[in-house]
Design a protein around this nucleic acid. Structure first.
Length: 486
RNA sequence: UCCUAAGUAGCUCAGCUGGUUAGAGCAUCUGACUGUUAAUCAGAGGGUCCCUGGUUCGAGUCCAGGCUUGGGAGCCA
């Protein structure tokens, strides 16, 4: 068997027999730096902390030492010893060093120095080997695990909703078409349009923009379900918080109303943060320091004031502010910011809240996450439940958005319209073809119940927890307009 | 898609009002040193100044068009 190694994280944690001073170990990993022809900083991705391998002077061939370059992979046998130097308590005194893979120092793109995130984005296949991306992707993993843990503990069923879908009525955004028809000379029907009855599925299909509708079908049997999978939007969005391919978590719960829904979402976010704080303390510490360095470069008024860990602690320990859309509008209208005409977009009841409005509420006014509820029906999707007793002309739906400092909307959700007649009326008004949605309406025809759900953008959550400002830096290989490398 | 800033060595950047052979730090290579922590010291190599066209005696520098990237906006998660 080749693999008898001890992971570097385990070795450095020091509560294991293999990490005890005096024991013989095998470590494998990639060289981060090689100092003084003697000290190898070796990393295997289990932690940002490198193990220091000491190659005693004169004990190894020059031919081997020359090949210990940044990026090279090594198998080291040695003895765990107390370190004579500062910076680490134990180190590995090498008895044998085997080069598993050479790395030409003149060609290897990652140098033992700081790189810009923009540069590393172009070297996405190697950036995992840096401290920043090591931490980000270990935290991303932890968050994914915590998602499943949270729902599993609460008896939710993980429903795998399809990635290819024929439903195009959801209206969540532009879709990517899926077809096997030839681009040139595609079959046409009598009307001169492309004849999708001859396509692979016999109809027009797309990549999913949301698993919600299918999720609702599951919730009408299992009561509590969640989805967690990739979703696709063909929007030409070029921002620090949009991707063409991203991961979304969508719980859907029968017998929940809007308040239950908010409670679930808030508990969920707090669980995710708490999990990472407990299991990725090292990585958070590193990112906290990295962010603090970055903040120093900013002018005072642009600094966030709270460190990353302080922010997470604050969010996980304090209740989110809950206000209605109407209250939000009033707050904006009464703000000095508004009176001094500092908003670029006008504020009045009925508008969709702009980024600047959301930022004001979250970052200036409340200084904590805010849940905004009961938006005007006119600006929200067809499946959201109409609130009863609204003033005519000011109809609202039981929607809720969670706005987070720094990234804006992180959750969007609602109580769903469970009343068949109301739903059909709304769909008709919005010109959504009822026939195509017949399967969906069946849930309202046969044993309909009040239910609610939400969608959480996974990458935005990773952004929030890691403090990374560009969403392209929290997904392994980002897909954005004009960019699909790897 | 719109607004805006940028593109010069492997990386991060400087390069004035157009003027001789385009610079620095880090990285790399060579040598010295050897308990280092982004090691240190000495030396060397390394450039399609984003692309195309234009103005000019002369363009990294000015003009036009294009490409790419960052930031902001819209759409949203």
């Amino acid at each position: 068997m080749f693999n008898q190694r001890v992971k570097i994280k385990q070795l450095l944690m020091g509560n294991d027999a293999a990490s005890a001073v005096g024991s013989e170990v095998v470590v494998m990993g990639w060289v981060r730096t090689f100092r003084n022809n003697q000290f190898i900083a070796l990393n295997d991705g289990s932690t940002n902390n490198n193990v220091q391998v000491v190659a005693g002077l004169g004990e190894f061939d020059d031919a081997i030492l020359k090949r210990i370059t940044t990026g090279a992979s090594l198998k080291v046998k040695g003895v765990v010893v107390e370190s004579q130097g500062k910076g680490q308590t134990v180190e590995v005194k090498a008895t044998s060093i085997e080069i598993l893979g050479d790395s030409d120092a003149e060609k290897y793109p990652l140098q033992p120095k700081k790189h810009s995130l923009e540069f590393l984005r172009e070297k996405a296949h190697l950036r995992f080997r840096t401290n920043t991306f090591g931490s980000v992707f270990r935290i991303r993993h932890s968050l994914a695990f915590a998602v499943h843990q949270f729902f599993n503990e609460r008896g939710f069923l993980y429903l795998h909703t399809p990635i290819i879908t024929s439903s195009d009525a959801e209206g969540a955004g532009e879709m990517f078409r899926v077809t096997t028809l030839p681009l040139e000379g595609a079959p046409k029907n009598d009307a001169g349009e492309i004849d999708f009855t001859q396509d692979f599925f016999g109809k027009s299909t797309n990549l999913t923009v949301s698993g919600q509708l299918e999720g609702e079908l599951g919730a009408m049997a299992f009561s509590d379900i969640y989805t967690f999978g990739p979703t696709f939007r063909a929007e030409n969005s070029n921002t620090t918080r949009h991707l063409a391919e991203f991961w979304m978590i969508e719980p859907e719960v029968a017998f929940n109303d809007l308040e239950d829904n908010m409670n679930l979402a808030e508990d969920f976010i707090k669980h995710l943060i708490a999990y990472v704080m407990q299991h990725n303390a090292d990585d958070l510490q590193f990112l906290d320091g990295r962010l603090a360095e970055e903040e120093k470069q900013l002018p005072t008024e642009k600094r966030s004031g709270l460190g990353l860990i302080e922010k997470l602690k604050f969010v996980s320990e304090n209740g989110f502010e809950r206000i209605t859309y109407t209250e939000a509008i009033d707050i904006l209208l009464n703000s000095n910011h508004y009176k001094k005409k500092k908003f670029q977009y006008d504020v009045k009841w009925g508008i969709d809240l702009q980024s600047e409005h959301e930022r004001f509420l979250v970052e200036q006014h409340f200084k904590k996450p805010v849940i905004v509820t009961n938006y005007p029906a006119a600006i929200k999707a067809f499946y959201m439940r109409m609130n009863d007793g609204c003033e005519p002309g000011k109809e609202t739906v039981a929607a809720m958005d969670i706005l987070a400092p720094g990234i804006g909307e992180i959750v969007g959700g609602s109580q769903r319209e469970e009343r068949l007649e109301r739903l059909e009326a709304r769909m008709n008004a919005m010109h959504i073809p009822l026939e195509e949605m017949s399967y969906y309406l069946d849930t309202r025809r046969f044993g309909s119940v009040p239910h609610a759900g939400f969608g959480l953008g996974f990458e935005r959550m990773v952004q929030f927890v890691t403090g990374m400002t560009n969403i392209r830096d929290v997904i392994a290989f980002a897909r954005t307009p004009n960019n699909c490398e790897y």
